[in-house]
């Protein structure tokens, strides 16, 4: 297995990990957003709570969820260690910093963006996930047995201005991270093709705007219209 260790010692191996985990997390974002959009249903939270219940109890989803946590931590850990390594490899920097218009700001600040996302996730998880796991939520029954009332916790949180601001900022940071991350993941897997890559890049740009926008609408909607 030395060959595998050697592989992951190289930039190619490390970035392969980053690419794979990144793409997994990108997929997760879609699933998460689709579920969250239940919040827009005007049904007193039934659809959302049923969905939340399903997500936390289905054994298959549970496995995927733990995989997701693992990938997230791996992504963060490898990403941060890469950033530290690369800082050292660069050494002294030039006195004049030039910003080439062909180079995105996001691509040079992925570690910073990633750490901000991580901080946001701690807040986010502490707010909902932790409460849900530790039984701090009320329970409701829609006729299929008791489910936890995550909806009430969410709608209450989204009435707090600072939380809404934090969520919106979190999504802007995510958008920047995705702006580079989406297409970069493909490059890391060695996918760069004269015919297909322009499409991937274009799709990635729309993705990195629309997904975070979708997430950001929810707190704004609750804050202003509920």
């Amino acid at each position: 297995m030395k060959w595998l260790v050697t592989f992951f010692e190289t930039g190619v191996g490390k970035k392969l990990l980053m690419g794979f985990t990144g793409l997994f997390l990108i997929l997760f974002l879609v699933v998460h957003l689709v579920g969250n959009l239940q919040l827009l249903k005007d049904d007193g939270g039934e659809a959302f709570n049923t969905y939340a219940h399903f997500m936390t109890t289905n054994p298959l989803i549970k496995v995927i969820a733990y995989g997701n946590y693992f990938f997230l931590l791996l992504h963060a850990f490898v990403g941060i260690s890469l950033a530290i390594y690369n800082r050292k490899a660069k050494g002294k920097r030039n006195a004049v910093a030039f910003k080439n218009p062909r180079v995105t700001w996001a691509s040079q600040n992925m570690a910073l963006l990633g750490m901000l996302i991580l901080a946001f996730l701690f807040m986010h998880m502490g707010d909902f996930w932790f409460k849900m796991k530790t039984g701090q939520l009320n329970v409701v029954d829609y006729g299929n047995g008791e489910v936890k009332d995550l909806f009430s916790a969410v709608s209450a949180s989204f009435k707090e201005l600072w939380i809404v601001i934090a969520y919106v900022i979190g999504q802007i940071v995510l958008a920047y991270h995705l702006w580079h991350g989406f297409q970069s993941a493909f490059q890391s897997l060695g996918v760069n093709h004269i015919k297909y890559t322009p499409f991937i890049k274009q799709f990635g740009k729309w993705y990195s705007i629309l997904i975070p926008l979708g997430f950001a609408i929810l707190p704004l909607y609750y804050y202003f219209f509920k």
């Binding site: 890469l82 690369n86 490899a89 180079v103």
Partner: peptide, 16 residues
């Protein structure tokens, strides 16, 4: 690739 690492070059993060 191994030599590139050994020399201490940084790892590509697709900045371009």
């Amino acid at each position: 690739v191994a030599q590139m690492n050994k020399e201490g070059f940084g790892m590509c993060s697709n900045i371009g």
